[in-house]
């Protein structure tokens, strides 16, 4: 009798341990995919493995779908079709792409043109998305030609016929859609919607420079490092983020090359046709949604500290941390983060 009870207790102990080991979310479940030209990582918390696997799989599928539609580098994407079409003529555009373009145009207006979704021809000149990456800047006369063409345009040369009409017109060869500064944020936000719908309420999506926080890790904040712009292995700030926060970082250190002692990077200034040089080397923006954070970090980088912070005033609930070329930094009072790099 006693032996049977002991056996029963041992089996019960093993069963409880098995259940605990299987289902207790002691750490986030992390899944990684290569998407949108970067490494995308989704971490979930507080859900079982099957729920997490299904939700994350669907979220990745959604991001891939958006990449298929909005990537400039995919010749069969909807965006590429618009870029390849005759200039000056109205082209059909899906409601979804029109919505992202409209948001990009709005960002452009609020940043006085510093944020520009029409820079595909200039991006092509620089070739930062090519393999192998460039080692020399484009010839100055080609940039001058592009600037001259831009000067003849009406505004940024993009006319959207309203989302109801679903038409778009690109004015001349100097303009082409490049949603690199905003589409990733849109994709991340859509992925968040999928996770929520599938019952995941605590998650972190990290898509290169774009991050989105959802909930917590069992009541604790998600622990995020902000890369030191001049030390790939170091962090400049630590951010403990909870709830609904998007974080986007734009810097001169991810896609760049050095030529004659000058750093040429992929964030281009529409006014000069060159890499933006407004005294900043990294800009991080916290916002309620990833698309706003994505667009703002690029805009602020191009505008520089003074004009950038002025623009930020138009976006309630958005905060920024700016790292200057001299290594100094400034963060707005509501930015959640602790500078750890030193003075």
């Amino acid at each position: 009798m006693k032996g049977r009870l002991a056996l029963l207790l041992t089996v019960a102990l093993l069963a409880v341990a098995g259940w605990w080991w299987q289902d207790r979310p002691v750490r986030p479940r992390v899944t990684t995919r290569l998407l949108m030209g970067t490494l995308v990582e989704i971490s979930t918390w507080g859900v079982t493995e099957p729920v997490s696997r299904r939700a994350v799989g669907l979220a990745f599928d959604e991001m891939a779908r958006i990449e298929d539609r909005m990537s400039r580098m995919r010749p069969d994407s909807e965006l590429a079709r618009i870029n390849q079409a005759q200039r000056g003529e109205l082209q059909p555009i899906s409601a979804e792409l029109a919505q992202v373009v409209a948001r990009g145009l709005e960002m452009g207006r609020l940043s006085s043109g510093a944020f520009d979704i029409g820079l595909a021809p200039l991006s092509d000149l620089w070739g930062f998305s090519l393999e192998p990456p460039p080692t020399r800047p484009p010839p100055p006369e080609r940039i001058a030609d592009w600037l001259a063409q831009r000067a003849r345009q009406n505004g940024n040369g993009i006319a959207l016929g309203g989302t109801a009409e679903n038409k778009i017109r690109l004015e001349n060869a100097g303009v082409g859609l490049d949603l690199g500064g905003i589409a990733k944020g849109y994709a991340v936000e859509q992925a968040v919607g999928i996770l929520r719908r599938e019952g995941v309420h605590d998650a972190l999506i990290n898509a290169g420079g774009d991050m989105r926080i959802l909930g917590s890790k069992g009541g604790k904040p998600w622990h995020v490092g902000l890369r030191d712009p001049r030390d790939p292995q170091g962090v400049a700030a630590i951010l403990d983020l909870l709830g609904e926060v998007a974080l986007s970082t734009s810097g001169d250190y991810e896609r760049y090359f050095m030529a004659d002692g000058v750093r040429h990077h992929h964030i281009l200034d529409p006014k000069t046709g060159q890499s933006a040089r407004a005294g900043l080397i990294s800009v991080s923006v916290q916002a309620p949604d990833a698309m706003t954070a994505d667009g703002l970090s690029t805009a602020l980088f191009v505008l520089g500290e003074q004009a950038g912070l002025e623009m930020l005033r138009h976006f309630p609930g958005c905060e920024a941390l700016l790292i200057r070329a001299d290594g100094g930094h400034f963060q707005t009072p509501g930015f959640i983060g602790r500078w750890v790099k030193g003075p």
Binding site: V26, R27, P28, R29, V30, E41, S43, L204, N206, G208, G209, M211, K217, W222, H223, V224, G225, L226, R227, V235, I238, L239, L247, T249, G251, E254, S284
Partner: peptide, 15 residues
């Protein structure tokens, strides 16, 4: 395998 808490200093690093 799943990463242990002790193997990841941060849940994510913003680049």
């Amino acid at each position: 395998g799943e990463p242990g808490e002790e193997t990841r200093e941060y849940d994510a690093v913003a680049h």
